[in-house]
Amino acid sequence: MSIYEELGIRPIINASATLTRLGGSLMPPEVIEAMVEASRHFVDLDELQRRVGEELARLTHNEAAYVSAGAAAGLVLATAACITGTDPAAIRQLPDLTGLKNEVIVHKSHRNGYDHAVRQVGVKLVEIGYATGTAPWELERAINERTAAVFWFQGAMTGRGDLPLETVIEIASARGVPVVVDAAAQLPPVENLWRFTQMGAALAIFSGGKDLRGPQSSGLVVGRKDLIEAIRLNGNPNHSIGRPMKVGKEEMVGLLAAVKRYLALDHEARASQDEEVVAGWCAALNQIPGVKAERSFPNEAGQPLPRARVTFDAAQIGLSRDEVVARLAQGTPSIAVALAGADGIYLNPMTLADGEEQVVLDRLLAVLQG
Rank of each mutant, 00 (worst) to 15 (best):
E356G: 04
D343M: 13
P349F: 04
L263T: 00
V337E: 03
G344K: 10
H267A: 10
D362H: 10
T351Q: 10
Y262Q: 07
G302L: 06
E356M: 03
E276T: 10
G331N: 05
E268R: 15
P304R: 07
M252K: 13
M350Y: 14
L305V: 15
E323W: 04
A326G: 08
E294H: 14
L256K: 04
L365H: 12
L265T: 09
Q316H: 11
T311G: 06
N299A: 14
R363G: 05
L365K: 15
E275L: 13
R270V: 14
T351A: 07
R309G: 04
Q316I: 13
T351S: 08
L364S: 03
A329Y: 10
V325W: 00
L255V: 07
G302C: 02
L285M: 07
T311R: 05
R261G: 04
R321G: 02
I317H: 02
R327I: 04
L361E: 00
R321K: 09
G355T: 12
V310I: 09
L364Y: 00
A257S: 02
F312D: 05
E356D: 11
V324N: 03
V324D: 02
Y346R: 08
A336D: 09
P333Q: 02
P289H: 07
K292F: 12
Q303D: 12
R295Q: 14
V291I: 14
A284V: 11
Q287A: 14
G344Q: 03
A293Y: 12
E356A: 08
A314W: 11
V310C: 07
L285E: 06
D313K: 00
P298V: 13
R309D: 01
Y346I: 09
E357Y: 05
V291W: 10
A279V: 05
P298C: 13
A301F: 15
Q287K: 15
R321F: 05
G341I: 00
R321S: 02
F312N: 00
S320A: 04
V253D: 09
S272F: 13
G318N: 05
V278M: 07
R270H: 06
A283K: 15
D313G: 03
Q287I: 11
F297Q: 12
A326F: 09
A283G: 08
Q358F: 00
Q287C: 13
E250F: 06
L328M: 01
Q358G: 05
K292R: 15
D266S: 08
L339W: 06
R307E: 13
T351P: 05
L328T: 05
E275Y: 10
L256W: 01
Q330L: 13
E300A: 15
V324W: 00
N348C: 11
N286I: 11
K249M: 11
L265P: 09
N286W: 11
G290P: 05
R295V: 14
A366C: 04
Q273M: 14
A293L: 12
A269M: 10
N348P: 08
P306T: 06
G290I: 01
E268I: 14
K249C: 10
G331E: 02
V259W: 01
R295D: 13
T332G: 11
D266P: 07
V291A: 00
D274W: 15
G280N: 09
A315H: 11
T332R: 15
G248N: 02
P349C: 04
W281G: 06
N348V: 09
D313R: 05
K260M: 04
P349K: 03
A283Y: 07
G254F: 07
E300W: 13
R363Q: 10
A338G: 12
L265G: 09
